[in-house]
Design a protein around this nucleic acid. Structure first.
Length: 576
DNA sequence: GCCGTTTTCGGCCCGACTGTTTTCAGTCG
């Protein structure tokens, strides 16, 4: 298998773990972790770059040494340093780092003193009471290690954003009733609208932090208390979800929200900027010595660092600090910018509502146009449309249009792309439609070359205007298919086909980085709900969050435009 | 291991909580 950026990122991450176990310079460890993050998020395929004999670009945090290691990995598929570390430290030792409460120091002690090299041996040592005998360990630590091993074997996956939002809403309602609370707010990856959330980070403002923490412990769903003090508390809910609460004085709300929203990498950049200005930034404020420079709002803190406010969805240290310093932040799309939806289903295929009901619901969600795009015949399980039923449906859509007020319907289809790149319906059936969306629903396992060829061929069809869910993943359920996304995006750009950002919370496809890549290449994106029921237009909100994470602006999207312009765009290709 | 409108050497974000200790190391976010 050819190596990818993801493989290289994993190798750097493992190197960092093993170096840490050897108590290497912590800044050296951090350099490897930073490199892993950078490489994993990079559009440019580094291995291909090296193999093609092209020089590596200058990348922040990659110096001569790490650049050499990238080349070594590209040529050989290995890192000599990592191979050596693996010979020195058994693989099970690094796995112990995954357990909460065990860091490099303790794992090293367990390995060196007790010769523990696997989770199974660790459990045995704990049950035998050998761990409490080590200096710095005790009976309580021993018990918590056993608990951690138990929890590790059936730990919950990261929650999808939609589920995390629901848990958070209920908890925030609960916290609002805590004594003296003036503000509550979601923070962390939830606020940054990441597609999945590992644990819930919540912020509250109150004069008595301990009282608010105690109030959290009384939440009916709390199954276990991990920590609780005067300023923060950590609990596990019955679902296994971890909730971290921070309580600060109201005067520190902005600084605390900034700190607790993250990302960690973004925070480190901000704190470094503060240091360069002779200031100190923490969750209580921005300080010059003992004097508070800014604290109450995020805007104040950013301003004091000579930055405009940066939207939470951008705070990943993916260039937003540099853009902010140059005043070149994108004007991110907002929900109110969406004028229409070009991909929904009805009870003609696998949707649950009629054409008219889906239209009325779209209008109720503030949309002014809607493309009806049911499945094509190959998807028999979804009752896909053949040419005859499609023609009848088009007549129905036209009829419904006459009766509707305040929303206009377009005819369309989500047509399957077959293995050879041809479409599931004949050109004659597609010709009268307003919108043709090409979608891959089968043969996910094709080789990268074959899958890419297939999709590029579909994009060459003159009627195709949108590529549905371009990477085909289902979050935590199905990996994206192996495809050269950059080639697909460039083809879309060349053919003036829009890439869909499918807003269904299980898909969110394009990904944030995919959106960014599309924007960089000048390709257009369309945010579609893919609603199969009336309430699913609510999902558009998650599509907006993902689009914002991908730096998309109103002008990058098709369905922010009024219908007149969308129609012109839809028609444009046919005249070429 | 990286980096430089103070620096090519000497820095590298910062604070809360726990458990094992009697003043703090380790871990976490």
């Amino acid at each position: 298998m050819p190596k990818t950026n993801a493989d290289l990122a994993a190798a750097f991450e493992q190197t960092a773990d093993l170096l840490e176990l050897q108590e290497a310079n912590p800044f050296r460890v951090r350099a490897y972790r930073n490199a892993a993050r950078l490489v994993g998020e990079l559009k440019l395929d580094l291995v291909a770059q090296v193999e093609a004999g092209r020089p590596l670009p200058k990348l922040p945090g990659i110096g001569a040494d790490l650049a050499g290691k990238i080349e070594e990995f590209a040529h050989s598929g290995h890192l000599a340093l990592l191979d050596r570390l693996r010979r020195q430290i058994p693989s099970g030792v690094a796995e112990m780092l995954q357990l909460p409460g065990l860091g490099p120091k303790r794992v090293r002690a367990l390995y060196e003193e007790l010769h523990v090299t696997s989770l199974a041996q660790l459990a045995r040592a704990a049950r035998d009471g050998r761990i409490r005998a080590l200096p710095g360990f005790g009976a309580r630590t021993e018990a918590s290690i056993l608990d951690a091993i138990d929890a590790h074997s059936h730990r919950p996956q990261r929650l999808k954003l939609v589920a995390a939002s629901q848990y958070a809403a209920a908890l925030l309602d609960w916290l609002r009733k805590a004594p003296g609370v003036s503000e509550v707010a979601p923070a962390g990856s939830l606020r940054r609208a990441r597609e999945t959330v590992g644990d819930l980070d919540l912020l509250a403002c109150a004069p008595d932090g301990a009282a608010v923490c105690r109030h959290l412990l009384a939440y009916p769903e709390v199954a276990e208390v991990r920590a609780s003090g005067g300023k923060r508390a950590t609990v596990l809910l019955q679902s296994g979800l971890q909730v971290d609460l921070r309580v600060v004085p109201t005067a520190s709300f902005g600084a605390a929200l900034l700190y607790f929203t993250g990302s960690k990498a973004h925070n480190i950049r901000l704190r470094t900027l503060a240091i360069e200005r002779g200031l100190k930034l923490n969750e209580y404020g921005l300080f010059a010595g003992r004097r508070t420079v800014a604290a109450a709002t995020e805007e104040e803190v950013y301003r004091a660092l000579d930055l405009p406010w940066i939207a939470p969805e951008l705070r990943e240290d993916r260039g937003e600090i540099e853009a902010a310093l140059k005043n070149r932040l994108p004007a991110l799309i907002e929900r109110a910018d969406l004028a229409g939806d070009l991909h929904v289903h009805t009870d003609w295929s696998d949707g649950t509502a009629s054409i008219a009901a889906m239209a009325r619901a779209a209008k109720a969600h503030g949309l002014s146009y809607l493309a009806i795009s049911d499945h094509s015949r190959r998807l028999t399980v979804a009752n896909g449309l053949d040419p005859q039923r499609l023609a009848r449906q088009c007549a129905e859509v036209e009829k419904a249009n006459g009766k509707l007020d305040g929303i206009e319907l377009l005819t369309g289809i989500e047509v399957d792309v077959l293995e050879d790149g041809s479409l599931d319906l004949p050109d004659k059936a597609l010709a009268p439609l307003d919108v043709v969306i090409a979608a891959v629903h089968s043969k996910f396992g094709l080789s990268r070359a074959a899958q890419t060829r297939r999709i590029l061929a579909a994009l060459d069809h003159p009627k195709v205007r949108i590529l549905a869910h371009p990477v085909g993943r289902l979050i935590d359920k199905r990996e994206p298919y192996d495809v050269d996304l950059l080639a697909v995006i460039r083809k879309c750009k060349a053919r003036d086909v829009a890439l869909e950002l499918n807003a269904h919370p299980e898909r969110l496809d394009l990904t944030d980085l995919g959106c960014r890549m599309a924007k960089d290449e000048g390709a257009k994106v369309v945010i579609n709900s893919d609603a199969h029921a009336e309430h699913e237009y609510d999902n558009l909100e998650f599509g907006i969050g993902q689009a914002r994470r991908g730096w998309l602006e109103k002008g990058d999207l098709i369905n922010t435009q009024p219908l007149r312009r969308v129609r012109a765009w839809l028609a444009g290709k046919e005249s070429r």
